[in-house]
Design a protein around this nucleic acid. Structure first.
Length: 470
DNA sequence: ATGTCC
């Protein structure tokens, strides 16, 4: 059936986008019921938009009036929140997503890191501060995805003299792949916590136990490498190693299946509750921290934070035991998480989705790639970045294009001559798919100081296909 | 990134 009035005409009459569906129904109904057409119909629509309270009982325009009334009381999209960007070569899609995020009614600040690229809702490398609400997709699917570096008491030549032991430790100490589990469930205090705080965490507890100490897929890894502290690096009292070279273990993993379940559960709830007025922000749907669902998400997110930390702890315990080394120093941080912080004297929820906390004196780890260095960093507390830095080099090639362009077998040969041994990895994770980490670090020299450099030597990642290993 | 799968 031909529309009595199209969306463009209705928009010209002042109907907001979120009410267009109801408006189309209303004019169609008025045309059918009252034979209303042309100028009369336009005048009627204008009146409903101007004074919806007078039309709540109207047979044809009641639903439109109710939609307008319900959403009139809600705060408007914001136009005044802006964000600073670090680095260059950031795709326009990430900027588009960031501009949309700044429109959130409760947004209070934002920043874009130099490794930014398009994500779901908020870009990876996006920082978003809000007041009173939490945005599940501004935390991300892999809640509490994080880095952990441990310095071991092994002599530097152990990576060569005990090469086979090191390889075996990485192969046996963790598991890779979607759905991967440890054959023998591992122990950690986090499993004694109360997982009944929400339905989804209660239902995920068994899976969490099976996946404790696993690494998943994608860009996750566990690797041995050499940590170099140079004379000119900034020393830090919390990480006070004398200049020199050390054997270190670096891992990148998160909250695995349970975190993904928490994210999907609460982002779906948030989206269902989102008023039509904010339809354009559906992938950034939020939950009030005063609501039951918001509090549940907050509690579940924090449990996933402790679970992800435990996951790394188990990996490091198993791998260091297998290689026969003691952990003598370490650094770790979440880079997909939300924190309650005070900025400009106001309490805010700061979401960092692929961004490293970089408050003044805060230590963190920013990895490069399997063939390029990562860095132990110390935050400078730059207020315009909301105390944040990048969480890596940032992809510069999509996974699909990377899989069409590179073969991990070729990269393995190339890296071997550079002294890097790849046990397994996906073709979409080779160094060429990432930006130059040195340029990315240079672009954020006002956000972090470099405390040490980590050069990968033996790398274990999920192989092509991302299926769980046997 | 994940697997509670459409």
């Amino acid at each position: 059936m031909r529309e009595v009035m199209n969306r463009r005409q209705l928009t010209q009459l002042g109907v907001p986008e979120y009410a267009l569906v109801e408006a189309v129904k209303a004019v169609s109904s008025a045309a059918t019921t009252h034979g209303m057409r042309g100028a009369d119909l336009k005048r009627q629509v204008k009146q409903v938009v101007e004074s919806p309270e007078q039309f709540v009982e109207d047979v044809c325009f009641g639903a439109l009036a109710a939609t307008l009334l319900e959403d009139q009381t809600l705060p408007p999209l914001q136009e005044n929140v802006t964000y600073q960007t670090w680095g260059s070569d950031i795709d326009e899609g990430a900027h588009t997503q960031m501009r949309e995020a700044c429109k959130l009614p409760n947004a209070s600040g934002a920043a874009l890191m130099p490794d930014a690229h398009v994500g779901y809702g908020l870009p990876i490398g996006g920082v978003l501060a809000t007041e009173g609400v939490v945005v599940p997709y501004a935390v991300g699917v892999d809640i509490a995805c994080r880095m952990k570096l441990s310095v071991l008491d092994l002599p530097l030549d152990a990576l060569e003299s005990k090469f086979d032991v090191c390889c075996r430790a990485l192969e046996k100490g963790t598991r890779f792949g979607v759905g991967s589990t440890h054959q023998k469930p591992q122990q950690h205090d986090v499993m004694d916590e109360n997982w009944n705080i929400t339905k989804v965490t209660r239902q995920s507890k068994d899976k969490a136990w099976q996946q404790l100490g696993t690494s998943g897929s994608g860009n996750h890894f566990v690797e041995f490498g050499v940590l170099t502290i140079r004379e000119e690096d900034k020393t830090d009292e919390k990480f006070s190693l004398p200049p020199g070279e050390y054997v270190a273990l670096l891992s990148h993993s998160g909250s695995r299946g349970p975190g993904a379940a928490v994210c999907s559960t609460y982002s779906n709830i948030a989206r269902t509750k989102l008023p039509k007025k904010y339809e354009q922000l559906k992938y950034l749907a939020w939950l009030s921290l005063d609501s039951e669902e918001g509090q549940e998400y907050w509690e579940a997110m924090n449990l996933m934070g402790r679970y992800a930390a435990a996951n790394h702890e188990v990996i490091h315990r198993l791998v260091s035991d297998l290689v026969g080394g003691e952990i003598v120093a370490g650094v770790e941080n979440h880079h997909n998480f939300a924190w309650k912080e005070t900025h400009d004297g106001r309490e805010m929820i700061v979401h960092r989705k692929g961004a490293t906390p970089a408050g003044e004196g805060v230590l963190g780890v920013i990895p490069g790639s399997m063939g390029t260095p990562g860095f132990v960093v110390r935050g400078k507390g730059n207020a315009s970045s909301l105390d944040s830095a990048s969480h890596g080099a940032g992809r510069c090639m999509s996974r699909k294009k990377a899989n069409d362009t590179f073969r991990i077998q070729n990269t393995r040969q190339e890296l071997k001559s550079q002294g890097v041994h790849i046990l397994s990895a996906g073709s979409d994770e080779v160094p060429g798919v990432y930006k130059d980490i040195h340029e990315v670090m240079a672009a954020q020299s006002d956000l972090v100081d470099i405390v040490g450099q980590f050069d990968p030597k033996i790398v274990k990642m999920c192989g092509d296909g991302s299926r769980a290993e046997d």
